[in-house]
């Protein structure tokens, strides 16, 4: 069994050999499934997500379902593969955490997409989680951004997300604690962390979720590191999108 997070202070190295301000390897592909309106595959470290976007399409015959006729409704479906975690486990539809993530993602994009252009329609984002190793919400948000761009849904700017944590747990009383960027699964288990997403380059926070407890004094540092991480993610996504655009322009792939 490897060491735990308490060894960070010995050499300022995290469990997987990263420094405090380093992202994991982030790889992204766009247009991975020709059949979907928009699709992407994104991995942050060992967290891997496939995203497909359907729509905007007409609201199906269930008038009571959504009351908004003047703009498109974003709906999110997340499915977690049974083999994604360490133990093979089936997750039912009723999982509250998944439900909450769906709502968080839907709300974030509802505000960023130009939904008023598509009245009486829905945009469905389906996320398939293939592998789980921390920063799940952030990975899902990033994958959705790419897939939505691929689908050609107009939006204000990229939504880019990361997690940020602190090297010291809530109850242990280390005076010094470094903020950490992009936590992996085992760090998330031991340390307090938040997920932050920004929209655009102007540090505009569009999602902020924190479920663990942390001393208030450490929050600012964590946020700063998280927002900075979002910028790094944006740069990487931008390269992917531009490369795709270039290829379309060249007509090599349509």
């Amino acid at each position: 069994m490897p060491l735990d997070t308490s060894t960070y202070s010995l050499a300022l190295l995290r469990l997987d050999g990263r420094r405090w301000n380093e992202l994991r390897r982030l790889t992204a592909q766009i247009s991975t499934q020709a059949s979907a309106d928009g699709s992407s595959f994104l991995s942050m470290g060992n967290t891997k997500v496939i995203c497909t976007v359907t729509g905007p399409s007409e609201v199906k015959a269930a008038p009571g379902a959504s009351g908004r006729g003047d703009e498109a409704v974003v709906s999110v479906e997340i499915s977690v593969a049974g083999f994604s975690g360490v133990e093979r486990k089936r997750r039912g539809k009723g999982d509250k955490r998944i439900y909450e993530m769906q709502t968080t993602i839907a709300t974030a994009f509802q505000a960023t997409l130009f939904t008023h252009l598509y009245p009486r329609s829905t945009i469905t984002i389906s996320l398939h989680i293939l592998s789980l190793d921390g920063s799940l919400l952030a990975t899902c948000l990033n994958a959705s951004t790419l897939a939505l761009i691929d689908a050609g849904v107009p939006m204000r700017d990229y939504i880019c997300a990361t997690t940020a944590g602190s090297t010291s747990s809530y109850s242990s009383n280390d005076e010094k604690a470094d903020p950490l960027l992009d936590l992996n699964g085992s760090e998330e288990l031991e340390l307090p962390f938040l997920t932050v997403a920004t929209c655009g380059t102007e540090d505009e926070v569009s999602v902020l979720v924190m479920e663990t407890r942390v001393q208030v004094g450490r929050l600012e540092g964590m946020l700063a590191v998280g927002v900075d991480g979002c910028k790094q993610v944006r740069d990487i996504l931008d390269v992917v999108v531009r490369a795709r655009g270039k290829r379309i322009l060249e007509g090599s792939q349509l």
């Binding site: 190295l13 469990l15 997987d16 050999g17 380093e22 994991r24 470290g45 060992n46 133990e87 190793d133």
Partner: peptide, 16 residues
């Protein structure tokens, strides 16, 4: 008694 397979990333570096 269950057997689990754990996969961890390692980032190798030269600034240690």
């Amino acid at each position: 008694g269950k057997v689990q397979k754990i996969v961890r990333e390692l980032y190798l570096r030269q600034d240690i």
